[in-house]
Nucleic acid binder design. Sequence first.
DNA 1: GCTGTCATTGAACACTCGTTTAGGCTTTGA
DNA 2: TCAAAGCCTAAACGAGTGTTCAATGACAGC
Lengths: 221, 221
Amino acid sequence: MRSTRASESEPPVGTAVRIRDAAIRRFGRDGFSAGLRAVAADAGVTAGLVVHHFGSKDGLRAACDGYVLEFIHSEKMKATTRSVNAIAQLAEVEQYAPYAMYALRSIQAGGELGKVFVDRMAKDAEDYLEAGVQSGMIRPSRDPAARARWLTYQHTGSMLLWMSLHGRAVEVDDFRAELRRMSDEVTLPALELFTDGLFVDRTMLDDYLMYVPDPPAAGQQ
Amino acid sequence: MRSTRASESEPPVGTAVRIRDAAIRRFGRDGFSAGLRAVAADAGVTAGLVVHHFGSKDGLRAACDGYVLEFIHSEKMKATTRSVNAIAQLAEVEQYAPYAMYALRSIQAGGELGKVFVDRMAKDAEDYLEAGVQSGMIRPSRDPAARARWLTYQHTGSMLLWMSLHGRAVEVDDFRAELRRMSDEVTLPALELFTDGLFVDRTMLDDYLMYVPDPPAAGQQ
DNA sequence: GCTGTCATTGAACACTCGTTTAGGCTTTGA
DNA sequence: TCAAAGCCTAAACGAGTGTTCAATGACAGC
């Protein structure tokens, strides 16, 4: 063990914090293919020091994951904020925007944080929808968990796609602006669909329910 | 110009075809970070020969893009096949599955092919929806283009997200299996939403229409 | 039969990456 | 005051990358 507290659970302090924050920003901007030297330069240190503090690049990434994850689970993010479009909500707060970008990168890269983050959003969306159902604003579903998961995937996925295609989203401000542009374009069709649906008649749904009498078990996968 | 027909428009022949096909498969499996030597080994040749034929790695990728793009635009893909879930449809045909994987990677990487592919899908979806509206099966929209684009982004994006999170989708068969698994999970909530919508009342939509009297111009961006 | 052209190889180059190592500097504690 | 410990840098290493280059072999046309 060449480091003071490489992969230990103790949170980093001092310079290590600066490195970790720089890494979150840099990884969020450029993805995880960004080099250690770039992160180090952002933090005003050397590449060697980064691995001295975090053991390896994976260790650094794990520290970033852990920090962002802890933030997501913390009370700073209320459940309502955390549901379907949590990322956009996060991005609106200047201080938290880098976390949103980092989380999106992590989702894109298929990291563990990505899974946890999406699961979390889906779970919160389920609660949120359930509350809407209780108060009579949201239609009930035959499989609430699957619906919440699907809506989360749709929303997060389209955001991911938008950023892949349109996103020269390097700077935090660009990222936020791009999310707003997407929101503007999307709101009308979304409200239309959520209000009136897409199909005129019910045959597609009825045929499916006939063909598959038991909807797939909720909470699978 | 060190190559016979590096970036020329003439399509590759013979060994060059084998290299290009190997590249489509390899890039589709591992992403564009896959090395030239790996592609070369798949094709049974040397890295040097690859750049001899295609000028550079970018040249190779451009050739792949062009080929897949030409295929997408070709008559082999009818418009109905090409709409919203074109990728899943492609993946169902053993022979074309690598194109689907390559296209998804290209979308993920934000390449030009990705943009064109998504635009194409959105355009086809618009026509498809319009036909449905004409025949009385699909509800009309105040902004059909935006709706088609949004539905395309949602579907393609969630596919992208699914593959990022669940996809150890290295092999063609795994890719197809994963798409099917996703389809199973998604069908019920999708049909529910498309049939009945999500909101019980119309206040959200009406408020929006009141607040923004003119829906954003179609076909922007 | 000779010459030129093309396909192809294998080695080398220049570069970046993550990681290692040796050492200097500062702080701490006895 | 001296030694240990920790922070930090600069340089180097080895493995990867895309790309270049000289050499080889096959095959065409004259």
